[in-house]
Simulated scan of single mutants.
Amino acid sequence: MKKKLYIIGSGPGARELLTERALQVLKSCDRIYSTTHRHKTILSGMAANIEECRIQDIPSVLETSDGVNIGLLVSGDTGFFSVAGSLQQRLEGMADMEIVCGISSLQYFCAKEGISYEDIKTVSLHGRQGSIAGTISYNRKVFVLTGGDNKAHLICKSLMEAGMSHIKAVAGENLSMENERIVRGTVKELAGNTFEDLSVLLLENPDFINCHIPLYDRDFVRGEVPMTKEEIRAVTLSKLAVEPDDVVYDIGAGTGSVAIEMARKAYNGSVFAIEKNDAALELINRNREKLGAFNVTVVPGTAPGVFAGIPRPNKAFIGGSSGNMDKIVRELRVKNPQVDIVANTISLESLNDAVSTFEKHGLATEIVCINSAVAKKAGNYHMMIANNPVYVISGKSRQ
């Protein structure tokens, strides 16, 4: 007889939050396994003995189990950042499967706080790497599952370091249990606490930015540092094709105009603005704060020397190479052989340097020359004032 496997969402933890369907299934099972130790204590006496089982051992346990109806308890809801999805794929064909949903930590916590969760952006950093600076920059409310190296207080500290100390925060620890703890305050205030694994965070940014709204030259603090103009930025970003989760370098970032535009495209990712000029560094920081691009990290120094201290890039923009084009491209390709690169140049010598370097390092190269003009009022007339021609050189990794 083919075995029947029930993957059961156990909810946030308390036994009274198990659904009626989950209780019925548990009572019908010959064997019950759990991916976490706490189920053995919380649910003791409700069904057959619960055996703890590591996730990686579940296929072999299912194969050798003498039970016909087998229950597998997983935390939370089976459709909310759950192992249930991956287990379905791994166990396909080994048993008839039924997924039994549970109450998620999001549902429980938002009910506890008396708020709707229909407009909340959800993120899991439990056992994962990444930053939520971009997510909270471009969303009003963000719900975060924490744990491992990304405990709630450490996430709050990282947001403080990104300049977001003012963000409102609510942390929930041991939800639905006797030792449940809810702490409210700012990110700065919560960073002074210590939270256990499997805590959750609800973050609110009243000054969030709509990342889909374009930026104009007039939006930036300019100073005396040259800035890539909006028409050139539009073509450059189109060629670079920045995606939401990308890690991007802006090398020779100037005022930060390209970095901040890229940060809006990489709204779940990160942009590292590399610049050696002190006046430019000050402008990048001012524009970053003014335009709410807190997923831009300012990196003082010269490329490629600063690459060692920052994460591996998916994309890179070279606005200024300081004569180091060959070294920069070589080191970018060392950090990520699949990196895509776009460089902007004005002079023919720099164009030749970029093209020969890209081709030398095996990049599929495309060159576009942009000649743009902007209308300016002259009395009752409009005159077209030409901008300098700019070469946009794209270097795509050969897949």
Rank of each mutant, 00 (worst) to 15 (best):
F208R: 00
I385G: 10
S321P: 03
N277P: 05
G305D: 15
D57E: 03
E282Q: 14
S350H: 08
L202T: 02
R398F: 14
T146D: 12
K188H: 11
T64R: 15
V100Q: 07
E51L: 10
I50D: 03
F220P: 03
I209C: 05
L190W: 07
S60W: 10
I182H: 08
R38P: 04
I32W: 12
S356K: 15
G172C: 10
Y267R: 07
A84L: 09
I370A: 10
N352V: 07
H382Y: 15
S350R: 09
E16P: 03
S322H: 06
A111E: 12
N210R: 09
D119V: 01
E230I: 06
L363K: 05
I8L: 10
V334G: 11
M383D: 06
A191T: 11
L17E: 06
F220W: 00
P300W: 08
G223M: 02
N150R: 02
T186W: 15
S10D: 04
N150Y: 11
A354D: 04
M1G: 15
M46L: 11
M384I: 04
D245V: 09
I385P: 03
V271G: 05
N314W: 11
T365Q: 05
F208N: 00
G76H: 00
D250S: 11
N388P: 00
A133G: 12
V100P: 10
S176T: 13
V144F: 10
V183F: 13
A386E: 12
H126W: 00
G85I: 05
F208S: 00
E178W: 08
D119W: 00
Y33M: 14
V170H: 00
R15D: 14
A14Y: 09
Q107N: 05
G114W: 00
